[in-house]
Computed example of a mutant assay.
Amino acid sequence: MITMENIVRDGHPALRTVAEEVQLPASEEEIKQLSEMIEFVKNSQDPEIAKKYNLRPGVGLAAPQININKRMIAVHVESEDGTLYSYALFNPKIVSHSVQTCYLTSGEGCLSVDEPIPGYVPRYERVRVKGTTLEGENIDIRLKGYPAIVFQHEIDHLNGIMFYDHIDKENPLKQPENATPVGG
Results as ranks from 00 to 15, higher is better:
residue 20 E to W: 00
residue 21 E to S: 03
residue 22 V to A: 04
residue 22 V to R: 01
residue 26 A to T: 08
residue 29 E to P: 01
residue 30 E to M: 02
residue 34 L to E: 12
residue 35 S to M: 12
residue 35 S to I: 11
residue 36 E to R: 15
residue 37 M to N: 15
residue 40 F to L: 14
residue 40 F to H: 13
residue 41 V to K: 13
residue 43 N to D: 10
residue 43 N to T: 14
residue 44 S to E: 04
residue 46 D to N: 14
residue 47 P to Q: 08
residue 48 E to V: 15
residue 48 E to N: 15
residue 49 I to L: 13
residue 50 A to R: 15
residue 52 K to C: 08
residue 53 Y to S: 04
residue 56 R to D: 07
residue 56 R to H: 00
residue 56 R to V: 12
residue 58 G to S: 11
residue 60 G to Y: 03
residue 62 A to K: 06
residue 63 A to K: 02
residue 65 Q to I: 02
residue 66 I to Y: 14
residue 67 N to T: 04
residue 67 N to L: 05
residue 69 N to H: 05
residue 73 I to F: 01
residue 75 V to P: 02
residue 75 V to E: 14
residue 75 V to R: 05
residue 76 H to V: 15
residue 77 V to Q: 00
residue 78 E to A: 03
residue 79 S to N: 11
residue 79 S to K: 06
residue 79 S to M: 02
residue 80 E to R: 14
residue 81 D to M: 08
residue 86 S to F: 02
residue 86 S to E: 15
residue 87 Y to N: 03
residue 88 A to L: 15
residue 89 L to V: 13
residue 89 L to M: 06
residue 90 F to V: 01
residue 91 N to E: 12
residue 94 I to T: 06
residue 96 S to F: 06
residue 97 H to T: 03
residue 98 S to T: 00
residue 99 V to G: 08
residue 99 V to P: 00
residue 99 V to D: 06
residue 100 Q to G: 10
residue 102 C to P: 07
residue 103 Y to R: 03
residue 103 Y to M: 12
residue 104 L to S: 15
residue 108 E to R: 10
residue 109 G to F: 09
residue 110 C to I: 12
residue 111 L to N: 01
residue 112 S to W: 00
residue 112 S to P: 04
residue 112 S to K: 08
residue 114 D to N: 03
residue 114 D to L: 09
residue 117 I to D: 06
residue 118 P to Y: 07
residue 119 G to K: 08
residue 120 Y to V: 09
residue 121 V to I: 04
residue 124 Y to Q: 12
residue 124 Y to V: 06
residue 125 E to Q: 04
residue 126 R to T: 11
residue 129 V to W: 02
residue 129 V to Q: 07
residue 131 G to E: 13
residue 132 T to R: 04
residue 133 T to M: 01
residue 134 L to N: 07
residue 137 E to P: 09
residue 137 E to A: 13
residue 137 E to F: 01
residue 138 N to W: 03
residue 139 I to C: 13
residue 141 I to N: 00
residue 141 I to Q: 05
residue 142 R to H: 08
residue 143 L to I: 10
residue 144 K to N: 09
residue 145 G to C: 03
